Amino acid sequence: MNVPLPGQHHSRPVPVVDVDPAEIRASVEDVLHLVDELEEAPAEGGDLAVLGKQAALLEQAHQVLVDALDRVDRA
């Protein structure tokens, strides 16, 4: 008896996703490294200024992940 495997019953081809997990991971790690550098550097403008810069960088890393998930969802 020929029972199709999951996904084989679809008549359309499986789309190719243009998201490279290694590239996404590297991008996020680069941003997180900058966050760590801010923590280790002398505080210019006080701790709140550093915290604000770290928050902005974390938002940037979050956006990289959101964009990657969006590209996967579109595929």
Rank of each mutant, 00 (worst) to 15 (best):
Q54M: 09
Q60S: 12
G46P: 10
G7C: 09
L34G: 02
E23H: 09
E44N: 07
P15E: 14
L5N: 06
P21H: 02
D30M: 05
A68K: 04
L51G: 05
A26F: 03
Q54R: 15
S27I: 02
V64N: 01
V64I: 15
G52M: 08
L48N: 08
A68F: 05
P4G: 04
P15S: 11
D73T: 04
D18R: 09
H33P: 00
E40T: 14
V66H: 07
D30K: 08
Q54V: 00
K53Y: 04
L48F: 13
Q63C: 04
A22F: 01
V19M: 01
V66W: 03
L58T: 11
A56R: 13
P15N: 14
A43G: 05
V72Y: 09
R74H: 00
Q63P: 02
V35Q: 11
P21N: 07
L58F: 07
V28G: 12
L51E: 08
L51Y: 04
V66C: 01
V19C: 02
L69A: 04
L38K: 12
V19Q: 06
Q54N: 01
E40V: 09
E23C: 00
M1Q: 07
R74F: 03
S11T: 13
L69Q: 11
L32C: 07
V72A: 10
E39K: 14
E37P: 02
V28T: 07
L38Q: 11
E23Y: 01
H9S: 06
H9V: 04
D73F: 08
D36E: 15
L32W: 07
G7W: 01
A49D: 15
E37H: 02
H62Y: 01
L65R: 14
R74P: 02
A43D: 15
G46I: 08
Q8L: 05
A55K: 07
V3E: 00
A43L: 10
D47C: 03
A75T: 13
A56S: 14
A41Q: 13
P15C: 09
A26N: 06
D18A: 11
Q60V: 04
N2T: 06
L51S: 14
P13E: 03
